[in-house]
Nucleic acid binder design. Structure first.
Lengths: 199, 199
DNA sequence: TCCAATATGGTCCGGCGGTCCGCTTAGGCA
DNA sequence: TGCCTAAGCGGACCGCCGGACCATATTGGA
């Protein structure tokens, strides 16, 4: 048997309330009680549905994550499978940054619970693994494992938020920075194309 | 008049207790009450001395920060003033990473209070400013403002901790990664020395 | 219509950071 | 040396949190 009608209604109300609260307020002022109150349910209902606040945030992010994972796993190149390795790397960086810019409040909520809630999230593991692969394919000579983590860290929602809100960098400056972080050949030694083979 | 003897004793006891607790336990299990208890004083005594927990952590880190700032501002080159710009950059990165490795538990405690407690800290502003200058001097063609923040983020205590504890990267791998993040010319186009002038 | 399975939410619990205020103690001074 | 006041002190208290509990209300198939 499916979910009871009232349960479904409450689930939706809770998700709506949580999303709007996370968008609106400072993270520390979003409490379980407040979410329940805005959703018009009791605290216990929120917890029974989602386990804890982390589970609730997970449920909010899940569809966005799934959408991007689909495009990465089976969409059009260069974001999807196939295409030039360098183009694949940069398309992926663009997609990740767009995802972060779009979901920043939810991601920050996720980061807010537990020190490694962000990295530990299965989706993040996927992002990092994919990033590692694409860096390795595009730049065989670097430590892709480390660089992937460094780039992914530069794409943390709190970092991006900080650069925008407090250092007044716009999205395109950050985007350019991330690209050249992952692949400095584009910007640093200016104009030296087609020298990928060491010897 | 100076500080009363009992006050000085308590200040020292509190600092000791806090430091050892931050070293030993998970951050969330270090509470004001626990610190006071270990120090053998009341909670109010801790707060009167240091304002709040953030102030206490600040007081713990301050001497380490001051020591490094001295070396940077008036020590021997290349960490101190003077010397080759590239060497200055790399000496600085080494010093920053050593500082983080050495003070990681305290820095993580600092990061634990407030989302931007780390970046907002005056010392961090100094580190980032200095890093920006050194990147700009060593690599005039890149966006030093962005890159400095990205590198500094890669040096966050929580990030370094994560890479060591959960991804099993040793300190030297991280060190190499940070260096090549800040100056990819060293590693990426392999073995191409002395081509610093674009034309 | 009925009733068992399911969903619900007010109440309670332990613990937190931080404040308050009556009590204790240190230490300068006569 | 002894006293007295300013400084230091800490346990009780406040408001708030996330989460557990369980008596009650609701749903929807038989």
């Amino acid at each position: 048997m499916g979910e009871r009608a009232d349960a479904a209604r409450n689930r939706a109300a809770i998700l709506d309330a949580a999303e709007s609260l996370f968008q609106r307020a400072d993270l520390d002022h979003v409490s379980l009680e407040r979410i329940a109150q805005v959703a018009g349910v009791g605290k216990a209902t929120v917890l029974r549905r989602f386990g804890d606040l982390l589970g609730l945030v997970d449920a909010l992010i899940a569809p966005r994550v799934a959408a991007l994972q689909d495009r990465v796993r089976s969409g059009e190149p260069p974001l999807g499978p196939g295409g030039d390795p360098v183009a694949r790397l940069h398309a992926y960086l663009d997609a990740l940054l767009d995802f972060v810019l779009d979901s920043r409040t939810l991601i920050r909520a996720l980061e807010h619970y537990g020190p490694y809630a962000y990295y530990a999230n299965p989706a993040s593991q996927f992002w990092i693994g994919e990033l590692t692969d694409r860096i390795r394919a595009a730049r065989p000579t670097v430590d892709a494992g480390y660089l992937a983590h460094a780039v992914f860290t530069a794409l943390r929602a709190d970092v991006v938020d900080y650069l925008q809100q407090h250092r007044h960098m716009d999205a395109e400056r950050i985007r350019a920075g991330v690209h050249s972080l992952a692949d400095p050949r584009l910007t640093d030694p200016p104009a030296r194309p087609d020298e990928r083979n060491p010897a």
